[in-house]
Design a protein around this nucleic acid. Structure first.
Length: 940
DNA sequence: GAGCACTGC
């Protein structure tokens, strides 16, 4: 060791200490800021606004509660009745038309969300309509006629009577406007939605069952292809069944509960839950043990009841909170609203919820539902959970990234906070594993409430599961009693293909009259996360009487949403899964067989309203011997940059020995640490730097937060925040349905600007702002309004956080160089250079990559690019992870190699990025610097 | 010139 390296070390050490000092001062300032606004640590500008509005609302409400509320109720009830009447009339009319159309005339209809096939070649066939059905139709017609007459009479009456013009009583109209304002309270939409759902649930039983029973006999089964299924086992239910056969059970069950519900008070409702008999025993167990594992099936009432029991038992004394984490936002919201309702208080007071962009809690809140990610953020400001007496980690079996991190942290906290109770709630047999992890904590079992599901397997493996799905759907349709079908597919493309072939197959069957005499309607509906919301809503519409709904869904239907009326589930046994290769930094989205846990979760979807059937398109042998027991926990499948930064900011330095339930791979941890070090978030001792601490404040990937912080230098924070917000919804900005692919593509091309995809996204956002956030504009340009709204939310939050970390918002106007330099400062790790022959290689890993054809840079590829991420997409390469081509998916931006030295001199050596081959480059493949400057008007 | 499952902060 010579003296110069000694100096170097000392310099580094000195810098480290200075940095630490600065970091602590910054942390102190943050703490002070937080104290000033005691409410919430990460309260962004929008949050604060929302809070102020909420406070105003609360105050106003107390003042004129008595005055407005009754009026409000009457008004909303009136509106609702009006709407319902209209709906019912329309429904009735459609019903009559349908029946006349289907059975009076001799045609059929296959409907999808967008298509009604009426013009298919049809042949007349004789059909017998029973007297009962005839009478029924006549009755409906009469009701409709009467209703119409009534409406006409009403209009006449209105015209003749005197009415106070709405605008004359000014005070009143104003208060009605306030009514609208009130509708915007966080849970209003949720409540309305729940009411609607409840209504639809209660309305759907009627003559349909009787009719269905009658009709059953008239079907005959003639099919070319048929899949042979064998039933090997039944997933036992835990609900008593009075009659066998689904419609009978459903009818009886509903009748009773509908009748009872009217009679029952909420308290009685609560008492009827399976968890109720265990109340005392559970409280006793909690009293005796610090950590308890609760194994409860769905429908046991654990999520809503346990916090209430704890509250009643006095765990909230002295303002201490009972916290309950959920993996999903909707769950946190709806459960909190349900509990508030049960306790007869207003949501946001004693019971509240806290999710990103929406904090519906107050200083009075003692039962707090929140998303697991929110809990983690909260831990950053309150590392000992001082405000909580109990923490419930719900749905632990789902093993989300956030719950997994929580496990380790919470286990540690419990060691020194002996007064903190910890409940880990899980649905499956994982309980033993949790128990083992949490120091042999006792397991408390609560039975659930579910109907039995018959499980069928195929006799032989299916070569093409998509075809098999279509055949099975039709098979169910002609042989099984009414009840909706849920099909699990892997993605948008499969769903669209299946939709098409289901329609054409149906038409074909119909044409050759193989389906028997009388055909029921088959409504095919797709559902996946990227589907525009209005089309998504279709699956919740109640199935018309006598028809059958087929829902083609991705994994979204496995946990995230529940569709009423599903009796049959078709499970091909595959799903798309993301996995991250820490050695190469490449993400891949691959179609894999599901785990047994997943398969059972899917089957369970058939047994929610009545006994159901699940058709698995694989053999029983495959289930037994080829499928994994559980899904690979998310923490072992993702880039850990974010998690590592979070843990570091919580003061956990030794990550390799952190107590994970299932530890991530060593490589993944090391890569994350390396990347954070390269970004300057960690110093050479592995401690968080001031920069790192600021980065941790942002709920985004480290590279992205680095980009945001670096944008200060280039005076383009406004633009950087927009780009970051758009990147956070990347992939769902542009909507591309298969049937309108060409239009969608041209619409997308119109947004292209030179320089790269990040700038295109920026352009999309600016244009949207110019249209005043128009929904119509989005629709016309094949842009998902939902994603844009989300980007706007994210943008507002990020803007607030920029202020929090003391960065001023500045705009560079149209200086794209500044924006691209900021991007480079965050993403310099992701640089690729075009080599000989026009193929790209990543600079650090020397991995061959290709720009994805959907990128704007694919037609005119520049020498140097920065990519947002590497994703494996080509299906052919699926089974060969070492295949030479990896597609660079999504956002790519053009840069100059010189910027790399400017932005990351510690990371790149001049020699590493010199353009030695530029002269040999064919002109068509790589542009010279001069060309580049000319085109971009760059000053560099 | 080919195509992102699902969450969450």
């Amino acid at each position: 060791m010579d003296s110069s390296s000694e100096d170097e070390y000392e310099k580094q050490e000195r810098e480290r200490l200075e940095d630490l000092k600065e970091r602590d001062q910054f942390a102190e300032r943050l703490r002070k800021k937080d104290k000033e606004k005691t409410r919430n640590l990460t309260m962004s500008r929008s949050d604060r606004k929302a809070f102020e509005e909420a406070a105003k609302r609360l105050k106003m409400e107390q003042e004129d509660h008595k005055k407005i509320v009754p009026k409000l109720r009457v008004e909303s009830r009136r509106e609702y009745l009006k709407k319902r009447k209209l709906d019912k009339l329309v429904e009735l009319e459609a019903d009559i038309q349908d029946e006349e159309f289907l059975f009076g005339d001799v045609r059929y209809a296959v409907t999808t969300h967008s298509l009604v096939k009426k013009d298919q070649p049809t042949k007349p066939w004789v059909c017998r309509v029973s007297n009962r059905e005839k009478a029924n139709l006549e009755y409906k017609k009469k009701v409709f006629q009467l209703a119409q007459e009534h409406a006409r009479a009403g209009e006449l009456e209105k015209a003749q009577r005197y009415h106070i013009p709405e605008a004359t009583k000014k005070g009143e109209t104003e208060s009605y406007i306030e009514v609208d304002e009130r509708e915007r309270v966080p849970n209003a939409e949720q409540r309305k939605w729940e009411e609607e759902r409840l209504d639809s649930a209660q309305m759907k039983f009627g003559a349909r069952d009787a009719r269905a029973r009658h009709k059953e006999k008239e079907y005959s089964l003639v099919m070319d292809e048929e899949i042979e299924f064998i039933q090997t086992l039944q997933m036992p239910g835990s609900k008593k069944i009075k009659f066998w056969g689904w419609f009978q059970v459903e009818a009886v069950d509903e009748e009773v509960s509908e009748y009872e519900q009217k009679k029952q008070s909420i308290a009685e409702c609560r008492r009827s839950l399976p968890i109720f008999p265990f109340r005392e025993a559970l409280l006793e167990a909690i009293e005796q043990h610090q950590i308890l594992i609760i194994e409860g099936e769905t429908g046991s009432g654990k999520t809503t009841q346990i916090p209430q029991y704890l509250y009643e038992a006095g765990y909230c004394r002295g303002g201490k909170k009972v916290g309950c984490t959920q993996p999903r936002r909707v769950a946190a919201m709806s459960v909190a609203s349900r509990v508030a309702q049960e306790m007869g208080i207003k949501l946001g007071n004693e019971v509240g919820y806290s999710i990103r962009f929406e904090d519906c809690t107050s200083s009075r809140t003692v039962i707090k539902y929140m998303t697991d990610g929110m809990m983690l953020r909260e831990l950053m400001s309150e590392p000992d959970l001082a405000g909580y007496s109990v923490l419930i980690v719900d749905e632990a079996h789902e093993r989300t990234l956030h719950t997994d991190v929580l496990f380790g942290l919470v286990k540690d906290i419990a060691l020194y906070r002996t007064d903190l109770k910890l409940l880990i709630s899980s649905a499956t047999l994982d309980a033993e594993k949790f128990s083992e992890f949490f120091c042999e904590a006792p397991i408390f079992r609560i039975p659930g409430r579910r109907f039995p599901v018959d499980i069928y397997y195929t006799k032989a493996p299916e070569a093409n599961y998509l075809d098999a799905c279509v055949v099975t759907v039709l098979q169910i349709h002609v042989t099984q009693p009414l009840g909706d079908i849920l099909v699990f597919l892997t993605g948008q493309e499969e769903i669209e293909t299946c939709l098409e072939s289901l329609q054409s197959e149906w038409c074909e069957q119909e044409r050759t009259r193989k389906l028997g005499s009388k055909i029921r309607e088959l409504i095919v509906l797709p559902i996946y996360a990227n589907l525009p919301s209005d089309l998504q809503a279709k699956i919740f519409e109640p199935t018309p009487p006598g028809a059958r709904k087929v829902v083609l869904a991705t994994n979204i239907a496995e946990t995230s949403l529940t569709i009423d009326g599903i009796v049959y589930v078709i499970d091909p046994g595959y799903c798309k899964q993301n996995s991250y290769n820490a050695k190469t930094g490449v993400e891949s989205l691959i179609i894999c067989p599901v785990s047994k846990a997943s398969a059972n979760q899917r089957a369970g979807r058939a047994g929610r309203v009545s006994p159901g059937k699940c058709f698995r398109l694989y053999t029983a042998w495959a289930y037994q011997h080829e499928m994994d027991n559980d899904n690979v926990p998310e923490i072992q499948r993702v880039n850990l940059g974010n998690v590592v930064l979070l843990l570091k900011s919580l003061g956990i330095n030794d990550l390799v020995h952190f107590d994970f339930l299932d530890p991530p791979s060593h490589e993944a941890l090391i890569l994350a640490l390396e990347q954070l070090y390269a970004l300057g978030a960690l110093n050479h001792a592995g401690e968080l730097t001031k920069l790192g601490r600021r980065m941790a404040e942002f709920p985004v990937d480290p590279m992205l937060s680095k980009m945001l912080l670096a944008s200060e230098t280039y005076k383009c924070t406004e633009e950087a925040v927009t780009v970051a917000a758009m990147l956070s919804v990347q992939g769902s900005v542009f909507y591309r349905p298969k049937d309108k692919g060409v239009h969608a593509d041209t619409a997308r091309k119109n947004f292209t600007v030179p320089g790269g995809d990040h700038l295109t996204l920026l352009n999309v956002y600016s244009q949207w702002v110019e249209t005043n956030y128009s929904t119509q504009w989005c629709f016309e340009n094949f842009i998902q309004h939902r994603s844009m709204r989300r980007a706007r939310d994210v943008r507002e939050q990020l803007e607030g956080l920029m202020e929090r970390v003391e960065i001023e918002m500045t705009s560079c106007e149209s200086d794209t160089v500044a924006v691209r330099k900021a991007i480079t400062a965050g993403y310099f790790y992701n640089t690729a250079r075009m080599g000989k022959g026009g193929t790209y290689k990543t600079v650090k890993q020397q991995q061959t990559v290709a720009i994805h054809p959907s990128s704007s840079l694919v037609e005119d590829p520049p020498r140097w690019v920065i990519y947002h991420e590497l994703v494996f997409t080509k299906k052919e390469y699926m089974r060969q992870p070492l295949s030479p081509v990896t597609h660079v998916w999504g956002q790519v931006v053009e840069i100059q190699n010189a910027w790399l030295l400017e932005v990351a001199p510690h990371f790149y050596k001049a020699k590493e990025i010199e353009d030695s081959t530029s002269k040999k480059m064919p002109r068509t493949l790589g542009k010279t610097k001069a060309q580049l400057h000319e085109r971009l008007g760059s000053t560099a």
